[in-house]
């Protein structure tokens, strides 16, 4: 007998692609924020922002995924996650909803996927009419090494 387990994701959209961030990682969802630029920081770092007295490093996920900057004029949103005890705000285009997906719908990312994308994703879930790429937050934020590898 096969037991079906499920996982919960917060869905976000980046450049039209649906991504899922494990719901337990997510601390906050923010609207547009004023972000302080940090000179000399890695290009993926958009800056720092103040989240109720905490300084949060903002990561430009588009930049991280080698995607062009947004052109549709939208200001974007942020999902705050914690990585090794430090808060990071992931800048994405928009936040969808919290969904429950069946582990049975899981598939490993195809080998033909862009290596950079494959690196930051823990796999793909087949949803109705759409594919959800699950984001591996640890690997997403570990860009010191991955950019070298890619």
């Amino acid at each position: 007998m096969k037991e079906t387990s499920t996982r919960n994701f917060v869905t976000v959209t980046i450049a039209g692609q649906l991504f899922g961030i494990p719901v337990l990682c997510v601390q906050d969802v923010l609207g547009p924020q004023s972000i302080t630029r940090i000179p000399l920081a890695p290009p993926e770092v958009a800056g720092a922002l103040n989240l109720r007295g905490r300084i949060v490093t903002a990561i430009d996920v588009r930049r991280r995924l080698n995607l062009p900057p947004r052109t549709d004029g939208g200001r974007g949103m942020s999902v705050v996650v914690e990585h090794r005890g430090e808060p990071y705000s992931l800048l994405i285009d928009s936040v969808g909803e919290v969904i429950e997906v069946d582990e049975a719908a899981y598939e490993r990312a195809p080998a033909t996927l862009d290596p950079l994308w494959r690196q930051i994703s823990s796999g793909i879930y087949r949803l109705d009419g759409e594919l959800l790429l699950s984001l591996d937050v640890d690997r997403l934020l570990d860009f010191g090494n991955t950019t070298m590898a890619a």
Partner: peptide, 20 residues
């Protein structure tokens, strides 16, 4: 931590106007 390599900054803070 990802910014610790930048020797030009000794830290950061939040100003009176709420900006970092």
């Amino acid at each position: 931590p990802i910014l610790r390599d930048i020797a030009l900054f000794s830290g950061n803070t939040i100003l009176g106007d709420g900006r970092v």
